[in-house]
Simulated assay, not measured.
Amino acid sequence: MKGKNIVIIGGNSGIGKKVAEKLSQNGAEIYAYSRSFTGEQHLDIEKDFEALPNLPETIHGFVYCPGTINLKPFKRLTIDDFRQDLEVNYLGAVRTLHFLENSLKRSKEASVVLYSSIAVQTGLGFHSSIAGAKGAIEGLTRSLAAEWASYGIRVNAIAPSLTDTPLANSLLSTPDKKSAAEKRHPLGRVGKATDIAASTVFLLSDQSSWITGQVIKVDGGISAIK
């Protein structure tokens, strides 16, 4: 990863922060943007924007981290709830990819990593809004992988199960909740941000140079075994 320019959206906490740390340790140049950053690194992905400041002309990797966890019965989910989940999880990725397309093409070997959820391919109650938004991410992953393959751009997604990050705090906020979540996973624990970050760095690296259009489940076995 030495000398590669990697853009991370949502790189201030959780998975994004761990990705940035691992990439930096491997010699990559990190360009991180987040709504929680101030100054030129501030970016609200729910709004249209004209520029990402201080970027080099060539980008070798892109990671889109923003997400939501909005779990409610379908009847209680409003159209605004669905719209918000689409804005954060899907349309924000579309906006930034639109802006970065030419810079990724200049690399001739770029890698894009997006995040889905096991809720897309494994039916989970109360997940209809987030599963819909993340399903859009999976469709985008495969479509862009096909469209951009001739430019040497690889596009993949990671589909995690419940991961211990600030975003998931409400689901793991008590010992009982955490214990129950751990027991649902065959490997006996929920995910760590470092688990997802390690898979992300692999997909950005040359070690995955023959992988594109894939949705890789990193989920402690919950979607595949009992």
Rank of each mutant, 00 (worst) to 15 (best):
K2S: 12
N5D: 08
G11F: 05
V19L: 01
N26D: 12
G39K: 08
H42Y: 11
L43Y: 00
L43T: 00
N54C: 09
L55Q: 04
E57T: 13
H60F: 02
G67S: 10
T68M: 14
I69S: 13
I69Q: 12
I69V: 14
N70S: 12
F74P: 01
R83Q: 09
D85I: 03
L86V: 11
N89D: 10
L91N: 05
A93I: 00
H98V: 05
E101D: 13
E101G: 01
S107Y: 03
S111N: 00
V112D: 01
S116F: 05
I118F: 03
Q121N: 15
Q121E: 15
F126V: 09
H127V: 08
S129R: 11
I130D: 11
I130E: 08
L140V: 09
L140A: 09
R142F: 01
L144G: 05
A146Q: 13
E147V: 00
S150T: 14
I153V: 15
V155N: 07
A159Y: 03
A159M: 07
T163R: 04
T163M: 06
T165N: 04
L167H: 09
K177Y: 06
A181T: 09
E182A: 15
K183R: 13
R189L: 08
R189W: 01
V190L: 07
K192G: 07
D195A: 03
T200A: 01
V201T: 09
S205A: 08
S205G: 12
S205C: 06
D206C: 10
Q207N: 13
T212L: 05
Q214F: 00
I216S: 07
V218I: 11
A224S: 15
I225G: 11
